[in-house]
Design a protein around this nucleic acid. Structure first.
Lengths: 112, 112
DNA sequence: TGTACATATATCAAATTTTGATATATAATC
DNA sequence: GATTATATATCAAAATTTGATATATGTACA
């Protein structure tokens, strides 16, 4: 049990910077977070497929010479809206956890 | 898939304010977070038992007139240290997610 | 030559966690 | 009479996560 990020939200946020393929998305999350946030392929690819199925992202294959082909994902308009929603959720979540975890005595809801 | 808090950390934080019983802990998390953070009994009690087993909290029964007895939990010294550690984890996690989610273009880790 | 790591996507079984219901019991409220 | 609040606890079913496996090529190191 530990704090866990919303992988979908993180993917959408990374894609807001421009289209990217899965492996790159995962590297960027890992690098940008200083390895605090890391996801295995078993989590990354299903999450990507789910976002594709729900039309939050659009995917296309890109072939390369002497390297495996890449599946590049681009944010859709629906994905952009979903990202906005996720940001609101994160703000609320962050505020709540910080309140409970961060600061000393809590207000008491009619104890007795 | 959504953002998920570390219930152990939240319990320890609430107990830093003083000993409390399970039902009260859960109410306090719910109330303090404006219902953003909510945990069912199926999560709360196992988490409490696990913390008790690992000596992060100490528990004792408190009987009441005309009401079910309460199991009151108090933070131990080990629990206090664990809470400090959890706070560090939270700070890192929060920073990382905010960086990726919150702000626009990310720095690129040697893309190509 | 062998080993390991980086690039790249994908699936799957096993382990873990979460959800939601059930059980038990009393008091107050509607 | 029904629901809600107080209070702890367990359990089956559902969902998710972990870690391995599969496939394929290039580069770096000893």
């Amino acid at each position: 049990m530990a704090f866990r990020g919303d992988l979908e939200a993180l993917i959408l946020a990374v894609l807001a910077d421009g289209p990217k393929h899965g492996y790159e998305i995962s590297k960027q999350i890992k690098t940008a977070s200083g390895k605090t946030l890391q996801y295995g392929e078993g989590q990354l690819y299903p999450a990507l497929h789910k976002l594709e199925e729900s039309d939050s992202v659009q995917a296309f294959w890109e072939s390369q010479d002497n390297r495996p082909p890449r599946k590049v994902y681009a944010l859709t308009e629906a994905g952009r809206k979903q990202l906005d929603q996720k940001k609101v959720e994160w703000a609320k979540f962050q505020e709540s956890v910080t309140l409970i975890l961060g600061i000393g005595p809590l207000e008491e809801p009619s104890r007795g």
